[in-house]
């Protein structure tokens, strides 16, 4: 880094944010594309049902389809909002 650059504000390190966002979206899209056709609809409808009771963001819902020797496991994770914020 040169003397001039030293006094300029350097860009914040955002590579980790990029990696984390990609890890999630890539896993989600692999599930959606590799899995059965009804998965996106299932995700949407489940989200609607959950929202009748708790106000969650769409991105608080994660769906993963894992293939383990011979059978498939559909994992559905919902991050509930903190108390008082919903």
């Amino acid at each position: 880094m040169g003397l001039l650059a030293f006094f300029r504000r350097s860009a914040p390190p955002t590579a980790n944010v990029a990696k984390e966002r990609l890890r999630i979206i890539v896993a989600q899209e692999r599930t959606a594309l590799g899995g059965p056709d009804y998965l996106p609809t299932l995700r949407r409808e489940l989200l609607e049902v959950i929202r009748k009771y708790v106000n969650v963001d769409p991105d608080a819902v994660q769906m993963n389809l894992d293939k383990e020797d011979g059978h498939e496991v559909l994992e559905f994770t919902v991050a509930l909002p903190e108390k008082g914020k919903a």
Partner: peptide
């Protein structure tokens, strides 16, 4: 830029894909 944490590294991209 990888060294300063502004850009994903080879290892990061390799791990994701």
């Amino acid at each position: 830029r990888v060294a300063t944490g502004e850009m994903m590294s080879v290892a990061d991209v390799k791990e994701i894909l």
